[in-house]
Simulated assay, not measured.
Amino acid sequence: MSYAAIHPNWEKPRANMVDGYSLEMTAKELDGLREAAPLIRPGTQIAITFLPGEEMEQRVVAAELVRELGFEPIVHLSARRLTSEAELDKYLSDIAASAGVKRVFVIAGDPPEPEGPYENSLQIIESGLLEKHGIEVVGVGGHPEGHPNNTKAELWDWMERKLAAVRSHGMVPLVVTQFAFDDDAIVAWVKEMRARGIDVPVRLGVPGPAGIKRLLGFAKRCGVGASANVMKKYGVSITNLIGSAGPDKLVASLDKGLTPDLGRVRLHLYPFGALKASAEWVNEYDAKH
């Protein structure tokens, strides 16, 4: 299976940094998606998160709406939040049957102790359940700024093991990163990835336009580096939390740093509840470039 299975334009150079972008939403943002839908390009891939406080049925309904509105659902699977193999089996069956889901993104999840049989995302990939329900593309996590629970060497080892497992089960691998503000760290991470011979497509997580307090709050909650120097490059002063900020400076810098020799790279926008604002920003950026 070619990388065109991930997105049709993966096989050609990107027109600009928002060419082939994807978005993220929670299972509770149905009204927000309906409002933003007229601004989002048909066929855009929209990831549906797997957060605490949601019911499985809510996630299924969200996937159905993404498909109904003309977009491509990518369903998150949080290994440590799954209570049983039967729960995972049923969820995959439901989203495949009602929303035609072919893409998933697997993560370990936040709970320190698993709520069921899965401790990590590799166990889900190796379960055989993904291909059983027709999943074709499997995204795994990337961490340009590191991870509090793993060393740098461990993160690369885990990534390579997961990518190999995806391929061995007959599916196409993709890497999707946590959002980050540090352009230098992101570019250096992509360069190291390619130097290691990891040639899979990458979706780089960038924060969408949002209030400054909201951006910093999500950064703290997700363990993302947001030092004064990094945020200054992003266009935010942490001594002035009034107003909002967008990813223009970050994306412009990434556009310069992510040269064609670094392979297939596209953006994944984290809207933080502001889907319409992120879709508007994408359209404005596209019109300028």
Rank of each mutant, 00 (worst) to 15 (best):
G211V: 14
D182P: 09
L51C: 02
T259M: 11
P148M: 15
L122I: 02
T151S: 15
V236N: 00
W281C: 00
L30G: 12
I186C: 01
A47W: 00
I40P: 06
K162S: 12
Y270H: 04
V61S: 10
D183L: 09
P260Q: 15
S84L: 02
P207E: 02
S98P: 00
G223N: 02
E131M: 08
E24D: 04
Y91V: 11
K102W: 10
V265H: 11
M17I: 15
S84N: 12
A108M: 15
R59L: 01
S2A: 13
V140F: 02
W158M: 10
L51G: 06
Y270W: 14
Q178I: 06
R80Q: 01
F272K: 04
D248T: 04
A62R: 01
K233V: 02
L258Q: 00
E64V: 06
V66E: 08
S2F: 03
S244C: 08
I125S: 05
G217Y: 11
V101M: 07
K132D: 01
H268C: 01
A274H: 15
S253Q: 06
G235P: 01
G211Y: 01
D94R: 14
N240S: 07
L216M: 12
D184L: 07
P38E: 15
D31A: 12
E85D: 02
G243E: 00
G134N: 09
D94Y: 13
L65W: 11
P42M: 07
P144K: 03
M56F: 09
L129M: 07
H268E: 05
L69I: 05
V175L: 06
A277T: 10
E280A: 06
H7S: 04
L241H: 05
D255V: 04
E85R: 09
N150W: 07
W10M: 08
